[in-house]
Design a binder for these strands. Structure first.
Length: 103
DNA sequence: ATCCTGACCAGTG
DNA sequence: GCACTGGCCAGGA
């Protein structure tokens, strides 16, 4: 209830992604009511580095619809440390590591 | 109020 | 596979 800023709602969803799993920008956006575009989710996560929300937001667990990371090697290393695997093209198998949006 | 800045995605050639 | 296009939001200064 007091949380009305859209970015905060996006962060709340991202916090629910379990370690070792990933969700896509579009998936996060579609899980909100009303839905917001994938781009907006990207913008919200880009702001994490500047505003540093508490509790922490596991931003590394959000990847694009191709199963690729958007922010480079650091994000990849964080995900590999959680047990997520990348193929030779640098893609994550979303069938295997994708979060369904519920437990 | 205006201006700037950003980590997307599906469709197309 | 890659490059390009259109869509058109929220927040901070």
């Amino acid at each position: 209830m007091g949380m009305s800023r859209l970015y905060d709602e996006i962060y709340a969803v991202v916090r629910r992604i379990p370690p070792g799993m990933v969700a896509t920008y579009g998936q996060i956006g579609m899980s909100l009511a009303p839905p917001c575009p994938a781009r907006t989710v990207g913008w919200a996560l880009a702001a994490v580095g500047r505003i540093d929300p508490r509790p922490p937001v596991p931003w590394q667990r959000v990847v694009n619809a191709q199963g690729k990371v958007s922010t480079g090697e650091h994000q990849r290393q964080l995900l590999e440390a959680e047990g997520i695997e990348f193929d030779t093209a640098g893609r994550i198998d979303l069938e295997r590591f994708g979060w369904a949006g519920h437990e």
